[in-house]
């Protein structure tokens, strides 16, 4: 593609000349035309330096990560809450915190990789109902081949139930687990 204000005196587009030269596929004209050769030479040194620049070690400032995470933690996404079954009531936990605790526990299962773990508070009973709060959990995960999925699903469910009970005093209304893939062992070659 030619551009009017940057066309060489020989009529060629200098960007194309450079691209061709770098790809080693300049035609006969480009290899012999002085205008094309100058265009290719002009770009070659800075191109070499650009490679060095791309590889030059740059260290991120030590203050960068803490500054980012301070802002992230200060603005965690607002999520639904679940009322914990404690005497007197008045204690809420976010579904985000519940999911966080579940991920932390489930990451201990060696054959399972949790991708998504979402807790849903469903229809929360009013305090007058004296019903335990409902929470359901939806997990998507991959299993390490050749895991036995029914056994792994049972273990995953059990750990989910135990964690909800131990950490929050909650019992899940349902725990759905979707295995979205199997993690195959790396090919040693």
């Amino acid at each position: 593609m030619a551009i009017s204000d940057t066309t060489l005196p020989c009529g060629r587009d200098p960007l194309e000349i450079v691209d061709h030269a770098r790809a080693g596929r300049g035609d006969e004209h480009e290899q012999n035309c002085p205008h094309c050769q100058i265009a290719a030479a002009e770009a070659s040194l800075a191109h070499r330096a650009a490679g060095e620049l791309a590889n030059a070690p740059v260290k991120a400032p030590a203050t960068l990560l803490p500054a980012i995470m301070r802002t992230v933690w200060a603005e965690l996404r607002s999520t639904d809450t679940v009322a914990l079954p404690v005497p007197g009531g008045g204690v809420l936990v976010t579904t985000l915190a519940i999911a966080d605790a579940l991920r932390h526990a489930l990451d201990d299962l060696p054959e399972l990789t949790i991708h998504s773990c979402l807790a849903d508070n469903g229809d929360q009973p009013s305090p007058e109902d004296h019903e335990p709060p409902e929470v359901s959990v939806h997990i998507t995960a991959t299993a390490t081949y050749p895991a036995q999925l029914p056994v792994l699903a049972g273990t995953c469910r059990q750990l989910t139930v135990d964690t909800l009970q131990t950490q929050f005093g909650l019992h899940p209304h349902r725990v759905d687990i979707d295995f979205i893939d199997l993690d195959l062992p790396e090919d040693p070659s």
Binding site: V58, L65, L76, R77, L96, A99, D100, H115, S116
Partner: peptide, 20 residues
């Protein structure tokens, strides 16, 4: 996926990997 779900710790790991 985890960060998309709102997991700040997963996002922190992404920042660690890509900040430089």
């Amino acid at each position: 996926t985890r960060a998309r779900d709102g997991d700040a710790r997963a996002f922190e790991q992404l920042v660690r990997r890509h900040q430089r």
